[in-house]
Design a binder for these strands. Structure first.
Lengths: 262, 262
DNA sequence: CTCCTTTAGGTATCTAGACGAGTGGGCGAG
DNA sequence: CTCGCCCACTCGTCTAGATACCTAAAGGAG
């Protein structure tokens, strides 16, 4: 019964080359951008728009699917289509692996989330030895088998990233690193105790659309890309001692780096 | 005419809860992942799949639209649907603004692309004074108006990124920085000549789906996110002397950073 | 008052078909 | 042999339903 309170949306331009469903998407997008619909607010229903624009339902759904692909809205079965709220983001500073942050007790993720007032969780822990992929082997310097540590991170119940660390067996086997809980300061603290003093990290960053498996693991909404980060840790002798492969929900992160100008 | 050479695709599972169009998308995705269809290769036409699976055309199109959203395939009007080739990527190293790279002559982008054997172009140059956005003003330390330098970068004819640099007027006005071509070494070289010795940069990285305007400017295919990078340059006195806002086609870039472990 | 059922209003999926428009190969006219 | 046209194939857009299933609120049974 909401006859689309007049003024929110305009009319179609039948002379335009632009497809009708695109015009509808354009109008909705603009209305959202202008704040006519606020975050979390319900958009007009498909039926409302069918009436308003005098088009068939598929055309309206087509328009919505564009906006979904852009990550602007999300549909809830049986409820409606809503403006997607921007979730709070986690900022990753480039000094997040500084030694001083390791001295503490808990893992970096937990400490940081607690400080930000969120409720952190770590999940689906798995530690096992396995064959190194070609890529990991190349990064670690031709290792055949590795210790893999898999885990998923959640913030206030929402999965935000999952990561796998790979370590050469000659370093990790039989050490606390091979335990589910490696102890205070995480595996970097253990690596240093084992005599592998860390020198620097190298991070490679890509962004892409998630695979279906990633959508499931991170419970991603439509139109949310992932940030794929591959970090390699080097000790003072120049040896790569760990590769960490991380996939993050892009809408939950801002990465921050400092570069010297020299 | 191509009755879908048997074996490439299987059958539907009518007992499955999974929607038919998802099952079709799953099969196509798996076939692509397994290399049954190679990069650039044409997938079966909509009509082929309608015959093969015995479903309506909209159902097949729905399946294709999923794969398009994942960035796996792209459709060409009148030709077919093709496996999207992975374009060559540009690697951005974290030392790309090191002073030694500035001494040369040409801009960083040109030098680097030439070295990689590609044909670089810079485009849609615009230099003008304007009101600072709230965000830019905050980053530059409460400046009201700024000099904005806009440009777009292309590699072998393909747009890969566009960027806007913002500089405080008291620094840039009346200098070569306000010229379309700031001269060898780019604006960072000019800033140092003007006495603003650069100390470090701060980069903030986000990934998201592009706006329609960004799709147009970067000629982005469906299912390709953008990397949004905001760099702030600081001089040795701790003053922010430039903010550069860059939007990159995510499928064309790998960013690389070095972090100290100390 | 609580709990279950009903029902109205949403979206999800699917069908069947129509017309438009871009592409590229074949064929006939010259 | 060459050029231009036509046609088959292909994706793009749109219509008009039908059925399924989910959600939330109203109403009735206990």
């Amino acid at each position: 019964m909401s006859p689309l309170s007049s003024g929110l949306l305009g009319d179609l331009d039948p002379t335009s080359d632009r497809a009708v469903f695109r015009q509808i998407a354009d109008q909705l997008r603009e209305a959202i951008d202008r704040g006519r619909f606020r975050e979390g607010e319900k958009l007009p229903s498909e039926a409302d728009l069918v009436d308003h624009f005098g088009v068939s339902r598929m055309t309206v759904r087509n328009a919505f699917s564009i906006l979904q692909g852009e990550g602007l809205v999300h549909a809830e079965h049986g409820r409606g289509v809503f403006v997607r709220p921007r979730p709070p983001v986690r900022r990753l500073a480039s000094d997040r692996f500084a030694r001083r942050h390791r001295e503490q007790g808990k893992s970096a993720f937990i400490v940081e989330a607690d400080a930000a007032g969120s409720h952190p969780q770590v999940d689906s822990l798995e530690v096992k030895e396995e064959k190194a992929s070609q890529d990991v082997s190349a990064r670690l310097g031709s290792v055949r088998r590795v210790l893999a540590r898999r885990r998923r991170y959640l913030l206030d119940g929402r999965p935000v990233e999952f990561a796998t660390s790979y370590l050469p067996l000659d370093i990790a086997r039989g050490t606390p690193i091979a335990e589910p809980n490696p102890g205070p300061g995480g595996i970097y603290a253990r690596l240093e105790e084992l005599g592998h003093r860390l020198d620097h990290f190298e991070e490679e960053i890509r962004a892409r659309m998630p695979s279906p498996a990633e959508v499931k693991t991170l419970r991603l909404a439509a139109g949310v890309p992932v940030i794929h980060l591959i970090r390699t840790a080097f000790d003072t002798e120049g040896r790569a001692v760990e590769v960490c492969d991380t996939v993050m929900a892009a809408d939950a992160y801002v990465l921050s780096y400092q570069l010297p100008a020299t």
